[in-house]
Design a protein around this nucleic acid. Sequence first.
DNA 1: AGAATACCTCAGCA
DNA 2: ATGCTGAGGTATT
Length: 310
Amino acid sequence: MGKMVWAHLAVPVKEVSLDVILPSGQAFRWKKHHDEWVSVLKDLVIVLRQDDNQISYRALASNNLPVPDSILEPVLSDYFNLSIKLSRLYREFGVRDSYFKKISPSYTGIRILRQDPWETLVTFICSSNNNIKRITQMIDNLCRTYGEYITTYNNIEYYTFPRPVSLCTSTCVQTLRDLGFGYRAAYIYKTALQVNEWESAGNSLSQLRGQPYEQVREFLLGFKGVGPKVADCVSLMAFDCHSCVPIDTHIWNIVQKRYATTAQLRASAKSKTMSKIMYDTLSQHLRKLWGHYAGWAQAVIFISELRKNE
DNA sequence: AGAATACCTCAGCA
DNA sequence: ATGCTGAGGTATT
């Protein structure tokens, strides 16, 4: 083993709280081992430690060669969206929304990660009618089976996230079912075929970044297993659509409990399933309330609700 | 059009 | 114990 070389990001916990955002259902591949958070970004195993004033980081590559900080720092800065100042957003949300102002002091450092589009798409297809624990297990199985081995750290093997082409095999659906994907196995396979074809034609999913939300959303809704909620999660977490507010069961619950709702919204509460119209109405309502970075406010409210149920 | 139902799996609960 | 419910929904009817 080479000498451990740590580099540092001067980021206070109030801007990024790893312990809050990494295990809370935004990304599903971070593992905590003692005081270290470990995951894979691109083809590197990333190791993070955090104290009050900084995040220390280093990376392990498959060749065991050191990864220069000049490569690593931009990767992390991008992944954690560090150009966006959280303190400023919290202040603005607090002015717009008294409930946010009330609860946010207990939930600081919650920000939206900027994740890989393909990985995010697959992950959130898996998230439908599912829970964080199981989603984490499914994604872990997927990478072990179809990803490329990178290295072992703390006795845990780390793999890349498989490229679409790796899933375009005749046995994929059955394999995924055996790995616990249930009915989502077929969705993943079909999506892999589509994305592979799209990329083979010289495109990349990343080129959707910077496109208007409506176009990103329409594109995403074209995949099997992607409905309004999943499309919004991917738009927000991979395609820079910061104002987009995914409406899940937790947000729906909290809106009914905490926010004044219109007669139309209250009436819909009786319905077993949320209609597309109702979904859009609610999402836009919250977007207007919270503003251009509404999706970031949603993340705070979502985690506060998640934590309360524990 | 809009609402109900089936869908994989599994932990938590009565 | 066996059966039900809900988990960051979606496709189908």
